[in-house]
Design a protein around this nucleic acid. Sequence first.
DNA 1: ATAGGTCAAGCGAGG
DNA 2: CCTCGCTTGACCTAT
Length: 323
Amino acid sequence: MIRRLGYACINMIHSDPTLVKKADRVTTNRTCRLATFQQLGMDHIKSLVLDNARDLHTILEWNETQGIRLFRLSSDMFPFLAHPEVGYDISDLGPEISEALAKCGEFIAKHDHRISSHPGPFNVLASPSPNVVDNTIRELDAHPAIFDAIGFSQNHNSKINIHVGGAYGDPDAALDRWCTNFARLSPSAQARITVENDDRASLYSVRALYDNVYKRTGVPIVFDYHHHIFCTGGDSEADALALAISTWPSGIVPTTHYSESHELHVGNDKPTPKHSILINALPDPHGHTIDVMIEAKGKEQALLPHQTSAMRNRDWWSAEADA
DNA sequence: ATAGGTCAAGCGAGG
DNA sequence: CCTCGCTTGACCTAT
């Protein structure tokens, strides 16, 4: 059974520049260039973050009206949060921002929304470059600060999801480095990290993650249905899903990712990793209870046609959540 | 107002 | 060798 559907970072109907005037956009993704920061200073970043934080609340309210209680927080919400030179503490941004973030946290708790994050592809714990690893650790350790400022529980319900990041011609050595460097993360980051299977055969299948990451670190695996097509590790979809689900702690509904191939949507025969704008179907939960993050260019517009009345029905999902 | 070039950041695939 | 795609386009300047 699919418990919830969610979408990532952007609400199209409230932010698409072809639909909404720039001044009226509701978005958590306001950022700036380094040059602009150097010109305008921290006051500019504070202004961007405050607008982002207030708009997050608006998006969450809209999600609630649609029965959408799964959402991915953009890591762009706090520009340069973990930048080697610019980096700052959220608590230093002032009471106005702290209050706006806490207000989001209260809404999330009250309506039982589930919020996650997915830091960018620059986060490579497996990198042979010490500098890349240092930057990654700084970035990943910054995410619990975001979650704490808003007020999420410190577990995999609000996950920080990443990929292993690279193979460098020697996947085993890369996996060793990943596990070694994982131990350097703060405990609050470690408690929330998940790993996701890759969309290329040269990288990491669910099976590879299970054997080389989960067994050594206990880090749960996020199953991406679409990626699995390109990197099966020899497992069927049902087997890979079951293996990934087995890595999740009890009491936390496993999250999965679902998307469809853009190439198939435009009439070509060969699927590629590129995401389609909308989706034609929902994935098969193969008898498990899962949450599904829809990764489609159309964001909530891809999700909405697939919301069932049961998903919109508060009584139903509350009962399920309690079960 | 809009179009086009640019932007902190890593990696691998494809042309 | 360069561009794209990924997690997620958005910023900024010129016209």
